[in-house]
Simulated assay, not measured.
Amino acid sequence: MAYEFQIDELEGPYTDEEGSQIVEFILGFDVEQDSIVVMSVILFPTTDPNALELCFGIRTKTASGEVSGPDYGREGADLYIPREYRAQVLAKVRESIALVVAAALPASIVMETFYPALPPQALQKYDGAAAAVIGCGYRLEDSFRDTENGINYWLFGKL
């Protein structure tokens, strides 16, 4: 793999064909695969018409138009985001959250961890995401770890 890390400006928000609101920024390029690697911050529809779910993850986009699903794992972060740039990337994620929330302004926002039983250090990025949502005029209505599956959940309501 000939990946080159090169963080770029925010793009969006835009709405995809499924009704999701998205802001993303380039993390780098893989010249051998003729693809770009982006961090996508997405608010997507839920079964509740008044709520959107917030997620953020790494996706790849090829020159032919193929787009991968979001990668929420540490392996993707280790592969595409050098350690010395992680704080900068997380700051851009928080900035992206502010933009996508301002564009959508749902009554409620939900967020959940992808992996169960995350240690406190791994939850720090979610704390930053929660602060970004709160900064957009929302209040944290509930936050808990499900005792059966170990997934953490957050619910925000518009002030």
Rank of each mutant, 00 (worst) to 15 (best):
M1K: 09
E4Y: 14
F5Y: 15
D8T: 01
E9S: 05
E9V: 03
L10N: 07
L10G: 09
E11P: 00
G12H: 11
G12Y: 03
G12E: 06
T15F: 06
T15V: 14
T15W: 06
E18T: 06
S20N: 07
S20E: 01
Q21R: 13
Q21P: 00
V23F: 07
E24W: 00
D30Q: 09
D30K: 06
D34R: 14
I36N: 02
V37Q: 00
V37M: 02
V37H: 00
S40G: 10
L43F: 08
F44C: 11
T46N: 09
T47H: 08
T47M: 14
D48W: 08
F56G: 02
T60V: 02
T60D: 01
T60W: 01
T60C: 01
K61M: 15
T62E: 10
G65N: 02
E66S: 12
E66M: 05
V67A: 01
S68V: 05
P70F: 03
G76Q: 07
G76T: 08
G76V: 09
A77D: 02
D78S: 05
Y80E: 14
Y80A: 08
P82W: 07
R83M: 13
Y85A: 12
A87E: 14
Q88D: 07
V89R: 04
L90V: 04
L90N: 03
I97F: 04
I97G: 05
A98N: 05
L99A: 09
L99P: 02
V101H: 08
V101S: 07
A103G: 04
A103M: 06
A104F: 04
A104G: 07
A107D: 03
M111C: 11
E112R: 15
F114V: 09
Y115K: 05
Y115N: 04
Y115P: 00
P116W: 01
A117I: 01
P119I: 01
P119T: 01
P119L: 01
K125W: 09
G128V: 04
A129N: 13
A129M: 15
I134Y: 04
C136R: 05
G137W: 03
Y138M: 08
R139E: 14
R139S: 13
R139G: 14
R139N: 13
S143E: 15
S143A: 15
S143V: 10
T147L: 10
T147N: 12
E148N: 12
E148L: 11
N149H: 06
G150Y: 09
F156D: 07
F156R: 01
L159M: 07
